[in-house]
Simulated scan of single mutants.
Amino acid sequence: MGLTSTTTGVTQIITVHSDRIDAAMAIQFKEDMRRETDSGTDRVVLDLAGVEFIDSSGLGAIVASMKQLGDNRKLDLAGPQPVVEKVFRLTRMDTVFRLFATLDDALSATAD
């Protein structure tokens, strides 16, 4: 699982460099996210533009990553492909996460 991290202003951007977040990589994803977000900004944007598939284990890994951030930090999601976005909507996780069509949309939004 490949993740890269950059910080712009008060936002940390984590980009997923894999076309899948599924059961085979969920544990590694959580570990990588923990390492990348161990210390950082109050707002993290997870760039999912390259992810073409996510299953329930991948969804669980993203939720676990959000919880690991704690109450004072926020995890937003950017650039989900239609199939990935559909998973978030069907599971009602779109009420838990803010979903942005693009990374630019996420960066121009306020942290709320």
Rank of each mutant, 00 (worst) to 15 (best):
V87I: 15
V96Q: 05
D47G: 14
L77I: 14
R34W: 03
V63S: 00
F100W: 11
D32M: 15
K30T: 04
R89L: 00
D32G: 15
T110W: 04
Q81Y: 04
V10W: 13
V44C: 06
G70K: 00
T41C: 12
L69T: 08
G50D: 15
R92Q: 13
V10A: 15
S108G: 10
F53E: 14
V83N: 04
G58D: 11
G70R: 02
V87H: 12
I21G: 05
R35Q: 03
R35K: 03
V63T: 01
A78M: 11
L48V: 03
R92W: 01
A61P: 02
V51Q: 07
S39M: 06
A64G: 11
A78G: 06
L3T: 10
R92K: 13
A78T: 14
D55P: 12
T7M: 05
N72Q: 08
I62L: 05
A111W: 01
N72D: 10
T95L: 15
D105Q: 11
I14W: 02
D94Q: 15
A106K: 07
Q68M: 08
V84C: 07
E85G: 15
D94H: 15
D94C: 15
D105V: 08
M25L: 02
T102H: 13
V10P: 12
T7K: 02
V83L: 06
L69I: 13
R20G: 14
A64Q: 05
T15P: 03
V84D: 10
T7L: 02
V96F: 05
T91I: 13
D55L: 13
V96A: 11
P80W: 05
V87W: 06
T6V: 09
Q12F: 03
Q68G: 09
E52L: 11
T6A: 12
V51R: 04
A78C: 07
L99M: 08
S56L: 10
L103T: 13
N72P: 00
R98D: 00
I54H: 05
V45I: 15
V45P: 02
F100S: 12
S5M: 01
M66T: 05
L69S: 05
V63L: 05
F29Q: 05
R43I: 08
S57I: 02
T91H: 12
G40C: 08
D112L: 13
N72E: 09
E36H: 14
N72L: 05
K74F: 10
T102Y: 08
M66Y: 08
A101K: 11
A109E: 09
L59Y: 01
T7S: 13
A24V: 04
I62Y: 02
K86W: 09
R98S: 07
V63I: 09
L48S: 07
L77F: 09
